[in-house]
Design a protein around this nucleic acid. Structure first.
Length: 102
DNA sequence: ACCTTGACCTTGG
DNA sequence: CCCAAGGCCAAGG
């Protein structure tokens, strides 16, 4: 994982608007289209170590699950932003909250 | 070179 | 939706 890749991931996460979200895989696709490498796991690796500097709670799994270890903080931020959630409030509803770089 | 590990994803049941 | 398998990419021992 070099700095160029990490920077590309972080720069994209910073662009996700409040109340919206992207999956690790979608981010991997967008960054991969530009740099030609990396997958969902690489995105996860970047977020786990350098994610603290960006709105990391807007990055979820493809099923809308928030990152492990920081659920409290994530739900607080997501709800405060009015992010579309599933009926039971346990996941982000990506069908409504999903965002892709414009 | 081989094996293991991961803030993952898709498919099939 | 859940679970199990298999795939995936990269890093590290």
């Amino acid at each position: 994982m070099d700095d160029e890749y990490a920077e590309a991931v972080l720069a994209l996460v910073e662009q996700i608007p409040p109340g919206r979200a992207m999956s690790y895989g979608a981010i991997a696709d967008a960054v991969g289209a530009r740099l030609g490498r990396g997958g969902p796991r690489q995105v996860g690796a970047v977020m786990s170590t350098l994610g603290g500097a960006v709105p990391w709670w807007r990055v979820v799994t493809v099923t809308g699950r928030v990152p492990p270890g920081h659920e409290r903080r994530a739900y607080r931020e997501l709800i405060a932003e009015g992010t579309p959630m599933t009926a039971d409030g346990s996941r982000v509803d990506l069908r409504r909250a999903g965002w892709y770089p414009q």
